[in-house]
Design a protein around this nucleic acid. Structure first.
Lengths: 368, 368
DNA sequence: GACTTCCATGAATCGTTAT
DNA sequence: CATAACGATTCATGGAAGT
């Protein structure tokens, strides 16, 4: 099958078929974010029984069986090559796995040119215990967060994730319960998919590394968590799933999701202030020609010339250059260094810049 | 240099030299535990400055520089091959790394035949933050815990680690601060080694997967944390380190350590009950020839023959076989199924087994 | 001495835009 | 495309210094 020319005909669909063959239909450089939850190659040798002689319902599906590491590597390389091709230059990919497969996956990704930004550990607050007492409880899974090239300008909503994490930057260890209760899809009391991922995981991934309207690809769609959260958060998706039953379940699940209102998807926090030259403050009258700037501790001062350069003894130049020179540092952000006196108190020039933005622009989060 | 015949001449020494060449001197199948902290191949490009314009003292040691992934892979494979050769058949290996290298290391280990038991995440309570707001704080490192072959009978002190962890199974995520304060080795206020590991890590590793008197090998000894904790806990060590300065520091550090008294190193908790055949209870008079065994609910009963087999209707065999047959299960632990009557009350045959052990063995934790 | 404030620092793949 | 200018950006801890 040939590559489809217009990707929009695939938007918000689940394509039922072989992952690698189906990926080959998608055009180059066309998706913004990929989330992949490939088979883990678990290699359980025998059935696993709990101490009370009930059988553990483990991942033993045919899709998780491979003859050898080599066969698994071949398969992994093929779908990863296609993923790299369809990913935009500045796109992001996430792959989740466990110690059975993640080392092989990570090595292949590095070899293909993907550049790893983080490995994120999903710490399960309620993992399955180890029944035999033969090893440590396997209480986590590993996600690789990577970009297409070392110099990719990828989306990363740092401030959102920091706010999400109560004001300190989010770390590489994520504490999230496994998918259970209401969220877990069951038919006649039986779980439909053995490795359904929690929506909390997808929410963090989608919010941190994509924008509303972006196109998200999941080459192993399963029960449709990716599509479900993508739709909720106003992103488009393409899912690939080879099992017809899973496909049906996912389609029904996603159809029930309602996208959040736009005002809930637009984050003023992430908007950058427009660039304001220091001279604009002079022209607007917020700072006066010839007045004196002070450092916070009043140890340094400088005079403002009419061309918006400042002079302090032998040092002359932009507010940035002079503040760096005075401190003997290679560079410095002068906006955070200089103050002026207004009604007897010190006012930061950065606050005056915020005031300028507020007066002259609309809906920009200069006061956040 | 030829392989040394008697490993005892290497015990508790740090061999200063190239890792791979020195490993080749160690005999086959001679060490019980390996801990390896290889170079991470960080590939740092530029300097990094904190927001307050101080420079980050990064890892820029020559030992961490490799030309390419391929060169790093070659190096890794060589030392891992030697480690596998010198490891005893039932020995254990731990390797620590970060996303820069751990995927390559893990893949090579699997290819060489090592069998992964766990990947353990060292979660740092106080990692260095991300200064530029470009990614998630890199707040963990990954350790691979593996054995020589899939069917190795490795040491794992499950009960100790459970007790260590306040009575619940220890999980694969370990919360441990980075090495700082008193523990961090400094000379003239400068850290001696850029990547000194916390002793808490080594303590968990050594206690969980080795026994007192075992021989522990560290092919990248650095500042000597492995040797130091090994000596404290009554294990022998061999360290390899190519830097003479590190070697000297490690030797001095280890010389100051005093091994704990023997009674602090012997854990009755871990001693397994001796295997007691059901027939021993007959012979000792704790159970009588011909008496009746009951299931707890008295739904089932069986008669004890003089050859220690039991019979219940058509079912005949060991206490295990018959209990499984009666319940229609593939197998079952008969010790937990059968009861006898003593003075009008039901007594579990497992309690009689414990009684037998208490009478006939010393210092065994049958009552724990 | 008790308490507060300041400062240094740790395995880090750490930027974007205009000229 | 290289270079220069602009300007955005940190958390937990321990020890020193100050009150």
């Amino acid at each position: 099958m040939a590559i489809i020319k217009d990707i929009s005909q695939l938007r918000n669909q689940i394509l039922c078929g072989d992952t690698i063959k189906t990926l080959r239909v998608i055009p180059d450089n066309s998706v913004d974010l990929i989330f992949a939850d490939p088979p883990y190659n678990l290699q359980l040798r025998d059935e696993l029984w709990r101490p009370n002689q009930t059988k553990v319902d483990a991942v033993n599906d045919a899709w998780d069986r491979f003859e050898s590491f080599d066969e698994y590597d071949q398969f992994s390389k093929q779908w990863l090559v296609e993923c790299r091709r369809v990913l935009k230059e500045d796109g992001v990919i996430w792959v989740i796995g466990s110690y059975h497969n993640i080392f092989r996956i990570g090595k292949i990704m590095q070899d293909l040119g993907f550049w790893i930004i983080n490995d994120i550990i999903w710490i399960k607050s309620n993992p399955m215990p180890n029944f035999r007492g033969t090893r440590f409880t396997n209480a986590h899974e590993t996600m690789i967060f990577a970009v297409k090239n070392r110099d990719s300008h990828y989306t990363f909503h740092y401030k959102s994730m920091k706010a999400y994490n109560d004001g300190v930057q989010m770390r590489s260890d994520w504490d999230i319960p496994i998918c259970s209760g209401e969220e877990r899809i069951r038919i006649n009391g039986q779980k439909v998919h053995s490795t359904q991922k929690p929506e909390e995981l997808m929410r963090r991934i989608i919010i941190s590394t994509s924008n509303p309207g972006d196109l998200i690809l999941d080459p192993f769609m399963g029960s449709g968590t990716t599509g479900s959260v993508a739709k909720l958060l106003g992103r488009d998706f393409i899912g690939i799933e080879r099992d017809e039953n899973y496909t049906r379940v996912a389609q029904e699940r996603i159809s029930k999701v309602r996208t959040l209102d736009e005002d809930l998807l637009d984050y003023p926090l992430e908007k950058r202030d427009p660039r304001v030259p220091f001279g604009s403050l002079l022209a607007s009258g917020l700072i006066y020609d010839g007045e004196t700037l002070y450092s916070r501790d009043r140890k340094f001062h400088a005079r403002v010339l009419s061309n918006a350069t400042i002079v302090s003894g032998d040092a002359a130049g932009s507010i940035h250059q002079v503040s760096a020179l005075l401190q003997g540092k290679p560079n410095f952000n002068g906006w955070n260094f200089w103050y002026v006196e207004r009604d007897g108190t010190m006012v930061s020039v950065d606050d005056l810049r915020s005031l300028f933005i507020k007066k002259n622009y609309q809906n920009i989060g200069a006061d956040v």
